[in-house]
């Protein structure tokens, strides 16, 4: 897996697929059993981490300190000027509450503070682990908007999520994990390239199957209850397809065209790779 400058790279997988573990290893808190990685082609991890802003799982701060006091610690670890504290608090709209104790924050505010903290060193790379997990719809919208804004400024982002639409909305590239194995890594467009599915049924199923298999653009043909399930690899016009079947002497009694949802494709991708 390779993360290029300027990418918004998603790590996608169901719960327990190894997203957080992967990020934990990349951030130096977990030890890998095998394999190696490098940030910025720099072998000293903690120096690279100063140039990376990261959240792993929940926002972790000292509850008895205020937002500003917590960020002062982060600032000192990263070695950046004091002014950054107010700048990043502004960026996430927390300036008004900066002297309140972290313990008194709502989950959404905690998450925003975590993002502020991650932005502290003007990072070249932002690593976010389930940044919208547990937030209410408004909180989710706020955090996504923030991520999109940061991405537009050219920051490279590595984001882990089990939410497809999150990946679809913000990512340019995606790596799909399942039980710790990589299923796919590449541009988002490429993963979800299939053009939908067609369900078709006719009296003479053998004839139908043969006809379908030879039609251009159809990737797979499978039996689904009483109908055939066709997955498409290029655009197929259902009207044209129907006409073709009639010309072949097949009268269909069932024809449904479905543009597959990402959700379904994701589940397909994951279930196919058993």
């Amino acid at each position: 897996m390779q993360l290029e400058r300027g990418q918004v790279h998603g790590i996608l997988g169901p719960n327990g697929s190894g997203k957080t573990t992967t990020l934990g290893i990349l951030l130096g808190v977990l030890k890998s059993d095998s394999g190696a990685f490098e940030w910025f082609e720099n072998p000293v991890l903690h120096n690279s981490l100063k140039k990376i802003g990261a959240i792993l799982e929940t926002p972790n701060f000292y509850p008895y300190l205020s937002a500003a006091q917590n960020l002062e610690i982060v600032r000192t670890i990263k070695g950046v000027p004091k002014e950054r504290i107010d700048e990043v608090l502004d960026q996430v709209n927390l300036s008004a509450r900066k002297n309140d104790k972290f313990a008194a924050y709502s989950l959404g505010m905690k998450q925003r503070l975590a993002i502020a903290s991650a932005l502290m060193s003007n990072p070249e790379i932002l690593v976010l682990d389930e940044p919208t997990n547990g937030l209410d719809p408004q909180g989710i919208a706020e955090v996504r908007e923030l991520i999109t804004k940061i991405a537009k400024e050219g920051t490279t982002i590595l984001i882990a999520s089990h939410l497809l639409d999150e990946i679809e909305k913000v990512c340019s590239h995606v790596t799909i994990l399942k039980r710790g194995k990589r299923l796919f890594s590449g541009p988002v467009d490429e993963v979800f390239a299939t053009e939908g599915t067609i369900e078709v049924g006719a009296e003479n199923r053998d004839e139908l199957e043969k006809a379908c298999a030879s039609y251009p653009g159809i990737k797979t043909v499978s039996l689904n209850a009483r109908q055939l399930q066709l997955t498409l690899e290029s655009k197929v016009d259902p009207a044209e397809f129907n006409k073709y079947l009639i010309n072949q002497g097949i009268i269909v009694n069932h024809l449904v065209y479905r543009k597959t949802s990402l959700e379904k494709q994701f589940l397909e991708l994951i279930s196919h790779s058993k």
Partner: peptide
């Protein structure tokens, strides 16, 4: 123990404090 309870030890390392530091 607070560093572990609040998981701030983890965050310190993620923020760029080496384990030795």
């Amino acid at each position: 123990c607070n560093e572990y309870t609040y998981r701030t030890v983890r965050q310190n390392v993620i923020d760029g404090l080496s384990r030795r530091e």
